[in-house]
């Protein structure tokens, strides 16, 4: 009974962390991705190379950087945020935002030019052009969101380091799986992994239903 309650608590922390990291990294990354995908401007190549490089940032390194920033003796240590869900979200955003920028860029670059030319012909304002771009690429952007969500829910190295895997506080599904593996409860660890996959499945099904309804409307 206690086990079930704890599992729900862990699932709650996992979802809270993943949803927040997905939202924040998409809010930052999508506009930047659309911007780089849309226009030709100086420094575009540099931005692309930079995001490409950061997409390959090993999670444990991102975790280490965040850990050192928020550590007791670190520059942000006074905030006392180490080993909290908040700091796990920070680490996740560092990892996921470049991915969001990268994929958004490559997806919007396909039709961004023609759309902005159309918008120009229709004398659209800048804001309206941006909105048009977003709505024309709705499906592509949804898959960006799902990718971001998938990355954040599956991540273990960084969240274990900065979150600390503390029971009833910062333990998420992946760190719980790691713990059960370390305890030697291999079959229970595998069962937890299946639960995690089921959640991923539910989120993906919900998302596809959402898009379909939108199309029918």
């Amino acid at each position: 009974m206690n086990m079930d309650r704890e599992l729900f608590q862990i699932l709650g922390v996992t979802l809270r962390m993943s949803l927040f990291s997905t939202c924040i990294s998409c809010l930052i990354g999508m506009p930047l991705g659309v911007l780089t995908g849309k226009g030709d401007f100086k420094g575009k190549g540099t931005i692309k190379k930079l995001t490409g490089t950061l997409m390959g940032l090993p999670p444990v390194v991102a975790g280490l950087i965040v850990y050192m920033l928020f550590s007791k003796n670190g520059p942000l240590g006074a905030l006392g945020l180490l080993f909290t869900v908040e700091v796990m979200v920070v680490a996740q955003c560092i990892l996921i935002t470049p991915v969001v920028i990268g994929i958004t860029e490559s997806m919007t670059s396909i039709n961004a030019k023609s759309i902005s030319e159309t918008a120009k012909g229709l004398n659209f304002s800048k804001r309206k052009t941006a909105l048009l771009l977003l709505s024309e690429n709705k499906q592509a952007l949804l898959s960006v969101v799902l990718t971001a969500f998938g990355r954040s829910i599956a991540e273990v190295g960084a969240v274990s380091l900065v979150g600390g895997n503390i029971q009833w506080k910062t333990r998420v599904m992946t760190t719980a799986i790691m713990l059960e593996t370390n305890k030697g409860n291999f079959s229970f660890a595998l069962a937890l992994g299946i639960v995690l996959l089921l959640i991923s499945l539910i989120v993906n099904v919900l998302a596809s239903v959402l898009v379909k309804e939108d199309k029918n409307a």
């Binding site: 274990s160 600390g164 895997n165 503390i166 029971q167 009833w168 506080k169 333990r171 760190t175 719980a176 713990l179 370390n182």
Partner: peptide
Amino acid sequence: DTWYINAGKG
């Protein structure tokens, strides 16, 4: 007991 931190780590 929030003072008791169950870390689940090495």
